[in-house]
Write a protein that binds this DNA or RNA. Structure first.
Length: 635
DNA sequence: TCAGGAGCTAC
RNA sequence: GUUGUAGCUCCUGA
């Protein structure tokens, strides 16, 4: 425990990267594709456990969570990812299977954190222990392809290859192209904390997830005790922990039926009519009980569309009457079907011809432009306020860098902030107005930088900030560092989701992911090779390295012909403090490996003549020899 | 091409 | 120390 804490203070938080490649490393992509295809055909799954806790799936789960920022944040048992990766792959797998044999997850650590939208309010976090997070990741990997096949096109939150931009684009489309001028704004009260466990299980069943042992494990995860900040422990009766790896997926499972139900409720919906009586929509058979909701069924409502982002959703309607009925019907449906309450103050109908409606940080309405109604959107007031205060703070950091921060770092941080905000809010048609206002608000704070701000850099410089902003008259420099002008943004129309993009079909992947550029046979062999006496981290990094090096020796550049020729070398030897992290490992041919460690003249001579290295290769070799504590050799 | 690290957003 | 999913941007190494 002590060593864990010590490590934590010295370890920087890793950051998650795109993980499409990882499934390929662990030879799981085809399996996931298969699940997706089966689910799309309407097949059900009553035996998923063997797959979930298969060796490859578990090791892939480790790979996927090791990059999480929170992997070095301990749960209630004080353990971090280090506790997992120091095991050998075999014991890691064995441990997961043992834990889940009679699964009883450890207590989830409750932590209240301020909401970034409104820092005066807090959001309850539930941080599971690292082994439990690993187990949840195993489950997620298998459930996601099944669920993706069933989920609605109108749901954008927490889903692969979908984002806010697409949700906003869909909203614009409904307003402008489909002429839906009324929107119902919904706000579910504390959604994550109020998810009904038995309803959730029923929804899983309806989606075809029918493995009883798996359902039991999910139940156990939901019922995991919560260790409150004051140290006492509580047993949850509802809700799914915000911080649990499967929680976002569970949220979509619960609300998936809402998407299909709403779309099926309007008269003459071509999709609903074509599929027949609201059943079998999207391969779901969960609508049989929807007959009881007369409020909607008898009104023959006109065209309407839902746009959902996690628990935040809007329904676009043709007219006021339709919108008001929808509000009532959906509220009732949520209560009766999912046992969820909406917040009456925040749930309302908005006439988009007269008022702005806020969604995902953007407020939007319709205005007349040359006899046509077009979308006019702005940065939401809350966001403007937040940007102002954060930008002020960051400028102050440049003026007077706090200790532990240099001026250069403060500028970089400010630029990243400005570019980040611009990147997101550029989908509002009126962004430039809002950022002009923000810039105006900041002039006083900018004065603190005084004459340090120049119109030209000291020398000629490049980089992304210059590329993007140097055409602005407001561009300034401090020495050689550009300071991004916050007022300078141009709007960029949000893009709709391309239907063809899909993570779980080879065709759908083609647009977002390139296949490995070399023969993967050797990679497979490497994956199957058991590494005795080595850690999971080592085994995992070895695969990355092999791919990063295109299956070639780092010194000679030769393609590996046999498994035995592949040697993974510690640059700084373990007995001198070298670790199993990526940076400390490199893949070389067997003879090169021998040569790195060789001390006897005859061995060196033999290997050298065998390899006949050129100058550059020799230099690489000697660098590795030096790191290993050996003197250089010459040909 | 790979990996890691910094920033941003939504919920 | 603040978890999680998803998306975006940039930088640095090999």
């Amino acid at each position: 425990m002590v060593t864990e804490n010590k490590r934590r203070s010295t370890t920087k938080k890793p950051k998650k990267v795109n993980n499409l490649r990882y499934a390929e490393y662990y030879d799981m992509q085809e399996t996931f594709d298969g699940l997706y295809a089966k689910a799309a055909k309407g097949e059900t799954f009553d035996s998923l456990m063997d797959l979930i806790f298969s060796k490859d799936n578990i090791l892939l789960a480790y790979r996927n969570i090791k990059g999480n920022g929170g992997s070095v944040t301990p749960g209630t048992d004080g353990l971090t990812i280090r506790a997992i990766e120091k095991c050998s792959p075999e014991t890691l797998v064995q441990k997961v299977r043992n834990i889940t044999k009679n699964y009883s997850p450890r207590a989830v650590r409750r932590k209240e954190i301020p909401k970034q939208s409104d820092p005066s309010k807090t959001r309850p976090l539930g941080i599971p222990c690292i082994w439990d997070r690993l187990i949840q990741q195993c489950i997620l990997q298998v459930l996601e392809p099944i669920c993706e096949a069933k989920f609605s096109e109108n749901s954008y939150g927490f889903r692969p290859n979908r984002d806010c931009e697409q949700a906003i684009a869909a909203s614009y489309r409904h307003m402008q192209q489909s002429h839906l001028h009324y929107v119902v704004e919904f706000d579910i009260k504390g959604f994550f904390d109020n998810v009904d466990h038995s309803k959730l299980i029923k929804q899983m069943w309806a989606l075809g997830i029918r493995d009883k042992r798996l359902i039991y494990i999910v139940k156990r995860i939901l019922k995991a005790p919560i260790q409150l900040e004051n140290g006492t422990t509580a047993a949850p009766v509802k809700g799914t922990p915000q911080g649990g790896i499967i929680s976002p997926l569970l949220a979509n499972i619960v609300l998936n039926e809402l998407d299909w139900w709403v779309e099926s409720q309007w008269a003459d919906n071509p999709v609903a009519v074509a599929r027949g009586r609201n059943r079998q929509l999207g391969g779901n058979t969960v609508f049989d009980k929807s007959h009881g909701y007369r409020a909607m069924r008898t009104t023959r409502l006109k065209e309407m569309h839902i746009v959902r982002y996690a628990d935040d959703f809007r329904i676009f309607c043709q007219n006021k009457d339709s919108a008001e009925r929808t509000l009532i019907a959906v509220t009732k449906w949520l209560k009766e079907r999912l046992r969820l309450d909406v917040s009456p103050e925040k749930t309302q109908v908005v006439n988009l011809n007269k008022h702005y409606s806020e969604f995902l940080g953007i407020k939007m309405r319709l205005t007349k432009k040359k006899n046509k109604l077009v979308v006019q959107s702005r940065v939401s007031e809350k966001a403007v306020k937040r940007i102002k205060t954060e930008a002020k703070q960051k400028i102050k950091n440049i003026a007077r860098p706090p200790k532990g921060m240099t001026e250069a770092r403060a500028i970089l941080n400010y630029n990243a902030f400005v570019m980040g905000e611009h990147n997101y809010y550029q989908m509002a048609t009126g962004v430039s107005l809002d950022f002009r206002d923000i810039g105006y608000e900041l002039t006083r704070t900018m004065k603190r930088l005084g004459d340090r701000l120049k119109k030209e850099p000291k020398d000629n410089i490049g980089g992304a900030v210059v590329d993007r902003y140097s055409c602005s008259k407001l561009m300034r420099y401090i020495k050689n560092l550009p300071v991004a002008p916050i007022s300078y943004v141009r709007t960029k129309a949000p893009m709709c989701k391309k239907r063809s993009i899909q993570k779980y079909t080879p065709e759908g992947r083609a647009e977002i992911h390139e296949n490995l550029g070399f023969d993967t046979k050797m990679l497979r062999a490497l994956l199957r090779q058991e590494v005795h006496e080595q850690s999971a981290a080592y085994a995992d990094n070895r695969l990355s390295l092999f791919c990063a090096q295109y299956g070639k020796c780092a010194v000679t550049g030769q393609v590996f012909e046999s498994l035995g020729d592949i040697h993974c070398h510690h640059k700084l030897p373990k007995n001198r403090g070298g670790r199993d992290n990526y940076q400390n490992l490199i893949i070389v041919r067997e003879s090169v490996h021998i040569l790195i460690h060789a001390t006897s003249e005859s061995t060196i001579a033999k290997c050298l003549s065998e390899l006949s290295l050129n100058k550059r290769q020799l230099a690489k070799l000697n660098k590795l020899r030096k790191e290993a504590g050996n003197p250089p050799v010459s040909a």
